[in-house]
Structures are given as structure tokens and as C-alpha cells.
Design a protein around this nucleic acid. Structure first.
Length: 486
RNA sequence: CGGGACGUAGCUCAGCUUGGUAGAGCGCUUGCUUUGGGAGCAAGAAGUCGCAGGUUCAAAUCCUGUCGUCCCGACCA
């Protein structure tokens, strides 16, 4: 039986369920988010993809400002002597650091690292800026690119150069630093849910998954359709490790010189990869409205030389822009069906069809990307003067659907297990997030990884009543989500 | 970094086994007709066959190397 036209798969991409990897790559390319570049492992972020990033920036940045942070910018290059001060940190990043060795044809006396992250250079500057407890806290964020020499790359999920933000703060005491770390973790969690429409598990990382040099690392973890977890943001309590290595010290109110407590936290364009995989379907992207470069696209229908709909669409679009909507009119000389498929592939949340009949009746037809024929509210006729309100409702509806579907998936693919054999099988099968009582020991985690290739994603407190680790039988100290990961 | 596969027109691919100097569909350009789910007709443009060597009278085709992409592992704030 033939599928209804709006339910047919696209020509450009394979079915999502058949091969997630192939689907993902095809969508990233065909929706014109990225292009491969002549540089191995580096992609070009095209205008439509950059539009996603800009919206992510706008939403996150507002949250950073609201929590008291300011933006600044630090150098791309880091002298080798600076990088090597914090032992764990250097060791952790050593294999991924790219080095500048020459200026022109002249060899440098000291190599310069291209930043894989900026704790070092920022810590060095903080050391100069901080003298008194009155100088604290320092709450700075930077939007930047970083470079890590990766072996296997994929658009957004892992590229050698990538865009991100990294927040770096310094505080007078440990409690305040921990509070900051957890505050920003919660900012990320809230962002993931309300902007990207992705439900996540947030919690502390195990010791082996910790950021090099951190006292404690927290993360938000999303679950992808193939059952693999995707770390979507991290927040680190660096304790005094970096302040000791980089001499960030200050005179406290009691007259004593003390080392500051620092934090760092970051989210990268990897979040966009999570969004693409979580929400996309066989027809392409489904972008949550708050991230969508185009929230609604007008497709005017011309009939028998009657092109009044084009002009009307432009007028209505102009009015919507004044209301703050990101809208576009597709007045190209293509058939409507072509345009429908074109914008569905690109994940535009709402399509607004307008033809001569609508112009006469002063109506438009709203079509939601999250609906297909058969759904009651797939297409709704809206009068022109009610358009702005109806569009708002439709966009909110799309977000709600995407979030609800993702939440349902996460819920139905999270397994609270009590049995050792079932636990190992689930990890190996890549069933999803496997939630067990855990001992917290690195040896146990390493064993599970060797047997199943799953690792802890993050941890959460015992509920009460658990006594032993499901994986190894030692005393349980916490609960952990195990999963294979990206 | 290991195992496997693949690089031919903007895209998807055929041609390679058995060397003889490059094709199809889609897309693109122009014109006309069209337009409520991927339009039709006509004409036209477009490829150093990833790159570099080698074998040969002759290489997209055979050999070697190299770069890139994809898949599976390893590694991975």
C-alpha cells in the first residue's frame, strides 16, 4: 500500500531506523547544516547550521547573564610551559593537543599549543587579577573555538575544531565553587529540556570519567535512538587544583593568603548533534522551535496566473516579524510539493500554506512538522488576523511534542535492574540507560567496560534500601547510569 | 591507531573482471506551459575519473604510494 505523500521517506536520506549513522550524516549534509572541508575532521558550518548555533548561543548566553556572568575572550595559543603546570590536566589532553612550532619559517623557542580548552590560560590571567577576597568571585564565560586532535570524527558529535562556550569562575571558598558548578549544571539541564526539547539525566561523573584536573565533574547525558548515551554538557568543580598550579591566590578577610576555588563548564555544538539525532525522522530534521533558524515558512500557491498569494504571504510575514517571529517566504519558482519536502528536510517547525482560496477567505493553513496526515491537527485553517496567536500555539505545540516523544523514549529505554546477568546483557545489547546500584569502584567500571563496552554516564544518590553493587556485589555507595556512549 | 568498504558531472551511481581515450538518472541553464505533496515539453552546459608515481603503443580500468569519506573496534574534556 502506498504511503500518503506526506509520510513518504525523502529521496535524499535513508530511513532513520535502518542505519542511524548513515541517516545522521545524510541529514547534516542534505539539510545544509554542514559541509565537509578540505581539512580532515573539520566541517564548515553553513548558514543554516550557524543559525542553529546562533539560537543556542542566544538562549544560553541569556542564562549565563542572568546568573551573573560576563563574556570575555582569551588567546587561542597557549605556551607549552603554561600548559604543563597542572600534571593531570596535561596528561589528560596530551594526545589531542596540536602544536604551533613555527612562526613563518622561524622555529619557535617555545611551542604553542592550540587550546583544547582554556583552563590554563584563563587561570594564569586570574592569578594576575585576584589579590583580595573582594576580587572574588570572578564569573567569566567565553564563546570560542577549540581544537582537539581526534582520530574519528563526525559532524557536530566529534570534530577536531569545534565551537563551544566555556565558563570559568574563581571563588573564595569550596562551598561557593561547588554551588556554582551545580548551578551551571542545572542551567544546562534546563536549557536541554526547554530549548532543545531533550530530556537528560544530570549527575556526577565517576572518577574515571572526570575532567583531567577536576575534583568533581558533572554532566547531562541524553539518550540517542541507537541506545547510546551522548554527553551533552559538563560542569567541573576544579577545587584548588588549578589555583595551586597557576597561583590564583588572594588575601582573605582573616588576613590569610589562600588559594581560590575554580570551576569550569561547557556546552559545544555537539548539543546540536544530540538535537538532530533525537528529534529527526525519515523526512529529515525536526528542529525545536526555539532553536529553529526559521520558525515558519510561507509557501504561497500560484494558480492559473493568480499570484496574489505571494504578495499576501510577504505582507503576513512582515507582520509576523514585527511580532518577533523568525519567518520566511519561499517564493521560488518551484512546485508547492517540492517546497514542502525541502523545508521538512530542514526541519522548519511550521509551514504556512496560502493560496488564492485562502487569500479570498483571508485565511492561511498552518501545518506542523510534528504531525502527519491522519493527525487531527496536522493542518489547521487560521484566519489572517488570528495568525500570530495560532503560530505561537503551533510552535509551542511542536516543542511539546518533540519533548514528549524524547521523554517517552528515554523513559522506555531506561532500565532499573537488580540482576547481574540482566545488567551485563542490557549493557552489551545497548538497550539504553541502565540504572543500577553501584559500588563506585574504578575496577568495577573497568570490568563492565571490558565485558560490554558500556561505562558509567553519571551517578545519582541511592534511593535507600540498596545494599550491593549490581555489577560486582561489593557494597553499593550510589546509583549509576551505565550505557555505551558516543 | 587496527579491520573492512568506497572515491567517476552539483547529487546518486554504471563503466573496471577482459586496458583502446567517459555514460545514465536526478539536478543545473534558457524558453514555453505549469503550481493546494517532490511538474511537463524542448534545447543546452557541465567531469584533470581524489591525488602522485609506475607498467604499457595506450590507464577510469592493472600495480604502488598517498589523501579523504563511511562502517566496526581502540582511544577520547
Amino acid at each position: 500500500m502506498a504511503l500518503a505523500p506526506e509520510n513518504q521517506p525523502l529521496k535524499e536520506i535513508p530511513p532513520k531506523a535502518a542505519d542511524l549513522s548513515a541517516w545522521y550524516t545524510a541529514v547534516c549534509i542534505k539539510a545544509e547544516l554542514v559541509s565537509y572541508s578540505p581539512v580532515r575532521g573539520c566541517v564548515v558550518l553553513r548558514p543554516y547550521g550557524f543559525g542553529l548555533w546562533e539560537n543556542l548561543q542566544k538562549e544560553l548566553d541569556a542564562r549565563f547573564k542572568a546568573t551573573g556572568h560576563e563574556n570575555a575572550y582569551f588567546p587561542l595559543l597557549i605556551p607549552e610551559s603554561l600548559l604543563t603546570k597542572e600534571a593531570d590536566h596535561v596528561e589528560g589532553f596530551a594526545p589531542e593537543v596540536a602544536w604551533v612550532t613555527h612562526g613563518g619559517s622561524e622555529k619557535l623557542t617555545e611551542r604553542l599549543a592550540i587550546r583544547p580548552t582554556s583552563e590554563v590560560i584563563i587561570g594564569t590571567m586570574y592569578a594576575q587579577w585576584v589579590e583580595s577576597y573582594r576580587d572574588l568571585p570572578i564569573l567569566i564565560n567565553q564563546w570560542a573555538n577549540v581544537l582537539r586532535w581526534e582520530k574519528a570524527t563526525r559532524p557536530f558529535l566529534r570534530t577536531m575544531e569545534f565551537l563551544w562556550q566555556e565558563g570559568h569562575t574563581a571563588h573564595a571558598n569550596a562551598a561557593e565553587a561547588r554551588e556554582e558548578t551545580l548551578r551551571m549544571l542545572e542551567v544546562y539541564r534546563e536549557f536541554a529540556e526547554t530549548v532543545a526539547a531533550i530530556p537528560v539525566y544530570s549527575g556526577a561523573k565517576s572518577a574515571s570519567e572526570r575532567f583531567p584536573g577536576a575534583v568533581e565533574t558533572y554532566s547531562i547525558e541524553a539518550l540517542m535512538p541507537d541506545g547510546k548515551a551522548l554527553q551533552s554538557a559538563t560542569s567541573h568543580d576544579l577545587g584548588q587544583n588549578f589555583s595551586k598550579a597557576y597561583d590564583i591566590d588572594f588575601t582573605d578577610a582573616d588576613g590569610l593568603i589562600k588559594h581560590a576555588y575554580t570551576t569550569s563548564w561547557g556546552m559545544s555544538w555537539r548539543m546540536l548533534g544530540a538535537m538532530i539525532m533525537t528529534h529527526g525522522d525519515d523526512r529529515g530534521l525536526r528542529i525545536p522551535p526555539k532553536l529553529a533558524p526559521v520558525e515558519a515558512v510561507f509557501v504561497p500557491i500560484v494558480r492559473g496566473g493568480d499570484d496574489r498569494a505571494v504578495q499576501r504571504a510577504k505582507e503576513l510575514a512582515a507582520a509576523l516579524r514585527i511580532e518577533g517571529f523568525r519567518v520566511r517566504v519561499d517564493d521560488r519558482d518551484e512546485t508547492p510539493g517540492y517546497k514542502y519536502a525541502h523545508w521538512e528536510l530542514r526541519g522548519v517547525p511550521v509551514r504556512i500554506e496560502i493560496g488564492p482560496r485562502d487569500v479570498d477567505a483571508q485565511n492561511v493553513v498552518l501545518v506542523r512538522r510534528d504531525k502527519t496526515r491522519g493527525d487531527d491537527d496536522h493542518k489547521t485553517v487560521v484566519s489572517e488576523n488570528a495568525l500570530a496567536g495560532a503560530l505561537r500555539v503551533a510552535l509551542d505545540g511542536v516543542h511539546a511534542t518533540l519533548h514528549a516523544q524524547a521523554l517517552e523514549f528515554l523513559g522506555s529505554h531506561t532500565f532499573v535492574l537488580q540482576d547481574r546477568a540482566a545488567f551485563f546483557a542490557a549493557c552489551k545489547n545497548r538497550d539504553g540507560m541502565i540504572d543500577i546500584a553501584w559500588c563506585g569502584r574504578a575496577e568495577c567500571e573497568a570490568h563492565v567496560k571490558a565485558e560490554t563496552s558500556a561505562t558509567t554516564r553519571n551517578t545519582h544518590p541511592l534511593r535507600g534500601g540498596e545494599t550491593t553493587c549490581i555489577a560486582c556485589g561489593e557494597p553499593a555507595t550510589q546509583r549509576a547510569y551505565f550505557a555505551q556512549s558516543y
